[in-house]
Structures are given as C-alpha cells and as structure tokens.
Design a protein around this nucleic acid. Structure first.
Length: 247
DNA sequence: AATGTCGTCAACCGCCGCGTG
DNA sequence: ACACGCGGCGGTTGACGACAT
C-alpha cells in the first residue's frame, strides 16, 4: 500500500501559480497565519496541494523575502557555510535573512559552482582541484559522478582539549598532516554579511554551532555555552582563516 | 528570421524526522 | 515499541527567456 498521498492529485492544480491563486494564499495567511498546510488549500479555496502552498509561500510570497541579486558578501558567506554544512540549504538560508533555501540552492548550482571552479576549487570539497578533479570538472554533465561525502567532517573541529592551532601561516605546506593525510583547510568563521565590526575579535575561536544557532541540537554538543567559563565545557572551536585564504 | 543551445529558477517529488496516539 | 500523519528538506525536472549560430 504505502503512504497515502498528501492530497487528492486528481483535484489539484499543478505548475505555475496564477495571480489569483497567489492573492488567495496571501489573503488567507494574512488572516489565519501559517500552519496546517494540509487543510489550508481547502480553507483558502485553492485547488492546490498543501505542500505546494507552503512552497509558494515560503519561496515566493513571504513578505520578508529579499528579491534581487546576491551580493558578493552573500556569495562568500554561502561558500563558507557550504564548506561547513554541505548541502544543508535550509541551515545556510537561516544565516541569510530574506533568502530561501530553494533560492540559495539554485544560486549555488547556477553561479557559485562555476565561481569556485574558476578559482580552481572543487565545489564539493572546497579544496583545490587536482588535475584529476579538473578532468572531472570538465566531464560532461550527463556522466554521473558519485557524490562525495558531505563536507562537514572535512574541517576537524578544535576542542578545548586541543591546543589552538598556530596561525595558518604555518605555511602552506598546508593541506597535509605529518602522517601524509591531507589536512583540512581552516575556516573563516566571520559569518556576518558586510564589513566586520571594528572591535570584533576575529582571531579568537568561536563556537560554530552556537554561531549558527545549532547549539543543543544534534549537530552541536556544546555545553554551558552561556557561562564565561564554558570554554572548558566541551565547546568545539574553529579558527578563522588568514587574509586571502580560501576554504 | 528561424532554429538550436544554454542558463535560470519556480515547482514538483520522494524521503526523512518528529510529534502524537 | 510501533504506526501514522504532517511538515520540512534536498534533489530533480521542466518551462521559459536569452543568446548564439
């Protein structure tokens, strides 16, 4: 049998939304607020699947959406967040007010991937392309390539049990550990859009999870985050990048 | 001007995680 | 512990416009 369909497909419209449908959806949500997407279409007089209504609202109709081109700052922030989080578009979108996960995902696939390739970076791993990667990058799109492991593990988090790494000027022999393992590049965790505040310390470590609002979630194991002495409590830290260093 | 190709993006699909009974 | 319903997420598709030939 399997799961029941989310709606009666034979009685629902599909495809592009009309202005009238948009107006109905907006008017309904203005009065009743978001939520209960399953019953919303009927209540709002829409012949649409609840999921479709939610998507339309979230990605297009929400009043707080920022339309228009991405700024360079937003570009860089997306790249940094992607290197940390992988294809977690909703988490990335959470750091860019007014942008949606769908929008960022599209933008990544159409613009940023190419931007990284032009920098000689692998958009999946955020590492410099090797000649082999380069060949892969030029591989015709229809030739499938197995997805690589998600990047989040690429950047081994620093814990307070480890001494902070020396500044990344530890030369760029970089990229390899003494064991010959490729070393994870460091991360610039100034995740704000726009110029940093003058008094913002950029060299001392920050809790990534906390910065991303993930503290207490599955991703973050930080404890006692708000207490000043919490550095010994198991925080995971990341060290910012040096000027001009890419992730 | 007609046709083909490419890039963009809104929308759909199927899966997953969480809450609830 | 289990099944179910729902919302949310990420991958993919397809329509459409811009550009090239």
């Amino acid at each position: 049998m399997g799961r029941s369909p989310c709606c009666e497909k034979e009685h629902t419209n599909k495809g592009a939304w009309t202005k009238e449908e948009d107006q109905r959806l907006i008017a309904y949500i203005r009065v009743n607020g978001e939520g209960c997407w399953r019953s919303l279409p009927k209540a709002a007089g829409l012949l649409r699947c609840g999921k479709s209504c939610r998507l339309r609202w979230m990605n297009y109709l929400r009043p707080d959406l920022k339309r228009g081109n991405f700024t360079d700052d937003e570009d860089e922030l997306i790249i940094r967040l992607h290197s940390l989080l992988g294809n977690k578009w909703s988490l990335i979108a959470g750091q860019l007010p007014g942008r949606t996960d769908n929008e960022i995902k599209n933008y990544w696939n159409t613009h940023i991937k190419r931007k990284l390739l032009s920098r000689g970076m692998d958009p999946h791993t955020h590492r410099p392309l090797t000649p082999v990667d380069g060949a892969a990058a030029s591989r015709p799109a229809h030739i499938a390539v197995p997805a690589r492991a998600a990047p989040p593990t690429m950047f081994a988090p620093l814990t307070t049990k480890q001494p902070p790494m020396e500044s990344s000027s530890d030369d760029g022999s970089s990229g390899a550990t003494s064991t010959g393992e490729p070393r994870c590049p460091d991360l610039n965790l100034d995740l704000s859009v726009g110029p940093p505040a003058a008094d913002t310390p950029t060299s001392h470590p920050v809790c990534l999870c906390r910065h991303l609002g993930l503290r207490g979630g599955a991703v973050c194991s930080c404890r006692q985050a708000d207490s000043p002495g919490s550095q010994g409590g198991g925080f995971r830290y990341f060290r910012p990048l040096e000027e001009g260093q890419y992730i």
